[in-house]
Nucleic acid binder design. Sequence first.
RNA 1: GGCGACGUGGCCAAGUGGUAAGGCAGGGGUCUGCAAAACCCUCAUCACCGGUUCGAAUCCGGUCGUCGCCUCCA
Length: 482
Amino acid sequence: MTLKIYNVLTRTKEEFKPLQPGKANIYVCGPTVYDYSHIGHAKTYVGFDVVVRYLRYLGYDVLYVQNITDVGHMLDTGEDRILKKARQLSAGPMQIVETYMREYFADMDALGVQRPDISPRASGHVPEQIEMVQTLIAKGNAYESEGSVYFDVTSFPEYGKLSGRVLEEQEEGSREAVRSEKRHPADFALWKKADPEHILRWPSPWSDGFPGWHVECSAMANKYLGTTFDIHGGGIDNIFPHNECEIAQSEAAHGETFARYWMLTGSLTLDGVKMSKSLGNTLTIKDALARWRPEAIRTFILSSHYGSPIDFSDEAIEAAYKGWQRMWGAVTLARQQLRTAVPGAANPDVIALLDKAKAQFIEKMNDDFNAPAALGVLQELTRQVNILLNEQGPHTNGTLTAVDNLYRELGGGVLGIIPDEADGGSSGSAEREDGLVQILIKLRAQARANRDWATSDAIRNQLKDLGVVLEDRADGTIWKTE
RNA sequence: GGCGACGUGGCCAAGUGGUAAGGCAGGGGUCUGCAAAACCCUCAUCACCGGUUCGAAUCCGGUCGUCGCCUCCA
């Protein structure tokens, strides 16, 4: 069974054959750090997080590069968005960049997104970008005009092959058309001469200025992954012009294929409407995390295919959360039973059940990282496990460990929705938390033995208010977090 | 207007030729001091029309509708 990837470049599902056997080099377009990250970023980067996790699970030696854009993004007004933010906050541009980059990583950490191996910043790679622009000029793919440099799209016949655009169709009505510096309306900037008030600037052979947005990805991907690499990812909204320009620059400069597989994620809408800064209907990751635990957000995101659009709503994430709770409840129960389980080998029937689920999970994930279907496999397994834990047993520690391990492996390691520990940062505090709850459970058991329902319910209700849920079972009371 | 994608039960969502995974919600049960959890039963013929085929949600054509991109955007 082999991994298949839907390649946007060919619009077909292809078997994944890396350039070098066993290695997977992947580049994903990262965020522009000038504000807090929103839930749309979460969809994209959780999506690729699972892609990378799964590739590693399959044994690939993955090199994951995701850039940080901290220069060169223009607003309609021609103003750099980072500079605009800096002016608003009376701060320096690099302070803004540093602040929001840290916030971005903090948000991703909170969501359980594993960090890229390399997070190169555009501002730190200006020489590489200048070098690439020089190459493109030397090869006749770019030209200087009044201190700026533009890519000549007519010099690259394949321009449009990713997005399906045809050059001629772009001319009409383009705002860019008014820029007389350019020979063709679709030509895009590789280097821009800076206006006097533009303080993010670097010296170059053409002017004091700054690199165009698209060239950073080409230059940095080339530096860290080479002229040709395996997978290029990003949000579908950047397919044109950004991704298209990346291809044009890189392939014109190097004369070789840029990325072999293109994986683009569907966009996220909020209550049916596209989130946009201008509309103001954004939901930041921080705000979302204040309302739902990270596993719920991840489960929601993974409940639709990475390439599909998804609509975020309270109802939708609530449904995902409740589904996750059932799975988490089963894992929690298995771990609780494991504490007092008798030593012994695993039940062969259970092992067979787990093996089957694992095989199905892998089959789904091999089919273009079909996380929603893989999630469905775990949901079905969970019903079987619940029957096992609730209606059969007691089980040996071998059986329970096997159950726990599968959830750790697939639900935790690959999907990132099953925590290793109950909760609370370090294992030390987790143990302390459990100890405290166990004391209360014993006190409540006393009250229940005395038929003192007022006390027993008070303990249960107050713990519930703290997010600790007690469940009375035939074999004792267990607890878990909401 | 151009390019691209999509339309599956009340909601979300898998499924690309052989008689519709899964989650949530709803109804009915079992269990329980109560509760919670869990489990069992129940709940769709796949926007519409036409075509190809022994057979289509799945392929082709058309209609209607939704969305993304075309300008910064993950």
